[in-house]
Amino acid sequence: MQLKQTRVIWLVLVVIVLLPLIKPLGLPLGPSPETEAAYQFIDKLPSRSITIMDLSIAPSSEGELWPMALAIGRHHMAKGHRVIVTTFIPDGVMYAEKLKEVAEKEFGYKYGVDILVLPYRAGGETALVALADNIRQAYDRDQYGRSLSELPMWQDITKIEDIALVSCYTAGDDHLWLARHVWAKHKVPCLGGVIALSAPEAIVYFQNGQLVGLISGVKGAAYYESKIGKPGLAVQSMDAQSLGHAYLLFLMIAGNIVFWTSKRRNLEKRPAGGD
């Protein structure tokens, strides 16, 4: 009986999430001051500024992080910023490739001149410290084994202070590492792109000024997509997110009503004097 009930609950979930994907409802997005701050900061960066994008994205967080990385990448490219893509998780390499492809196909970016892919480095926080403290010693070859000294873009980078913005897209702690080792030590502006779950924690780093902007979850990504005028994966998801949230909220409330009603009924049934 319980198994049947579970399957019905799941089936309704699938239908409810699916409907707005077929026919969007066009619900409003709502404000997002942290995302707005991120947009404003990037928008004001001069053309040809060099930025680092740490794409620590994995299939487990792709749904939230890839749309925001893509939107910010597109914003950088539309403004003519030079982008260094790197990652501190093994799966990130694949997303770096995807972003490079977007840069080359959509914006005509030239590899080595406008965009550069640094290889994955193991060690997490330690690897980021190595990058922040001495980027030239930390890397001597790019993702494809080419010597970095041969690439024109690399000539303009001698230290982390040459970077105008370091942003990360992570389901882990990369935004905290940036605040610890890039902002605290080198005062290079940092931006966090995090999954919605990390937002309540990451907000204090934004409030303290350790992060110049904070983009959280699909909502942040959708807001950014609409700001750059290119609605994409996140905007398309938002209506489905709305209905999905409403359904789960309904289940929570209904579950509690059933729970309290049955509890009261049990109390009424219990004979007087019993415990």
Binding site: L21, A196, G244
Partner: peptide, 27 residues
């Protein structure tokens, strides 16, 4: 209150995983 805020954002994370799969399969 803080744990409630974290809980409130959890659902978005979980839906954020499922919606792209649905979009892939049905799109």
């Amino acid at each position: 209150i803080s744990f409630g805020a974290v809980f409130g954002t959890t659902i978005m994370a979980r839906l954020g995983l499922f919606i792209p799969r649905l979009r892939f399969l049905l799109g």
